[in-house]
């Protein structure tokens, strides 16, 4: 850290100089009064540095915090790990670029894990731009690192269908009713890996990456609940959504990755199992994003504590007249 600060002295200077007016305000008005009348733009600036500096630090040094996988991340990993080469896995990408920061790393890790296991991957999306999320992940993982996998034989993108939970309700018993072509317009009949696929009950595992509605909750309600013996589901969800999915664990949802923390834990498991000596940074994105999250969380805690000290001090002053 010290070496970084010395090496990147210009960054330290920029941060300090940007905060000089704040220090001057504090010295002029006193700490208490300056903080009570603090313009919220100062908080925005401090948050900017709290996120930007760790991103830069991790980018320069490559350092990440050690992660100990939780039981849920381990369960998620084990679900895919238990599959045999050639088994079918349905990957539903129900998110958009707004949630890419949280869900992109786990999508990458899921696809990489499935590719390493030589599973047959069926991609679908219930969100309009889910298709673009699929394309990006396929390009990032399969096309660049697994060129031996053939489209239509090892993986296929069935694309987006509108209707939310109604789509799940149909494909759980008859996928051909809705999906007559893949996302590029090729007839399902011409895709070798779709041969004999009538419904998603034939999938060995469902993986849902979800940022809201429709998402994991709908997959649990309309796919897993009616067919608990035939459909197994694991999921990755945003931090906001994950607490709402805990009631389904473990019977309806044996594995769940919550936000970037869950992604980092899962990444560690996948990297330990398949990463080799020097894993590609794109497979460590979750771990790398834990740095900015740490500093941002600490900043929020400090802000809450300062605000409460100010609140109680003000109340005490008012009470004493």
């Amino acid at each position: 850290m010290t070496a970084f600060l010395i090496g990147q002295w210009w960054l330290v200077m920029i941060v300090v100089i940007s905060l000089v007016p704040l220090f001057r305000k504090i010295s002029r008005e006193g700490l208490f009064d300056a903080l009570v009348s603090l313009d919220r733009r100062w908080i925005f600036l401090v948050m900017l540095w709290a996120v930007l500096v760790p991103i830069y630090y991790i980018g320069v040094t490559g350092d990440t915090f050690p992660e100990v996988p939780s039981a849920l991340a381990q369960a998620t990993f084990d679900e895919i790990e238990a599959l045999e080469p050639g088994d079918r896995i349905l990957l539903a990408f129900d998110y958009d670029p707004a949630s890419e920061g949280e869900l992109g790393p786990m999508a990458t890790a899921f696809v990489r894990h499935a590719a390493e296991k030589h599973l047959k991957m069926y991609f679908i999306a219930l969100w309009p731009v889910g298709l673009q999320m699929i394309d990006e992940t396929v390009s990032r993982v399969i096309e660049s690192d697994f060129p031996e996998l053939v489209y239509g034989e090892d993986y296929v993108s069935l694309g987006f269908k509108s209707g939310g939970e109604a789509v799940i309700k149909v494909i759980v018993t008859n996928i051909r009713e809705l999906y007559t072509t893949d996302s590029r317009g090729t007839s399902i009949g011409e895709i070798p890996m779709m041969e004999g696929i009538e419904n998603i009950q034939q999938m060995d595992l469902l993986v849902n990456i979800s940022a809201g509605y429709p998402g994991t909750k709908e997959w649990v309600q309309y796919a897993v609940t009616p067919y608990p013996d035939r459909i197994r589901l694991i999921a990755g969800a945003t931090g906001v959504q994950a607490p709402l999915l805990y009631p389904y664990i473990p019977n309806q949802l044996p594995g769940l990755l919550g936000a970037i923390k869950g992604a980092a834990e899962y990444e560690k498991l996948v990297t330990d199992a398949y990463g080799g000596e020097n894993p590609d940074p794109k497979y460590l994105e979750g771990l790398r994003r834990m740095g900015p999250q740490l500093v941002a969380h600490l900043l929020i805690i400090v802000l809450i504590l300062i605000a409460n000290v100010l609140f109680f001090t003000s109340r005490k002053r008012e009470a004493s007249g």
């Binding site: 919220r40 908080i43 925005f44 401090v46 948050m47 707004a98 802000l303 809450i304 605000a307």
Partner: peptide
């Protein structure tokens, strides 16, 4: 869209200071 969502971090920080 990513920028719009990322701006939440700033509003959460501001809310942490003013509301909790």
């Amino acid at each position: 869209t990513a920028t719009m969502f990322a701006m939440l971090a700033f509003y959460i920080a501001s809310a942490a200071f003013r509301a909790f």
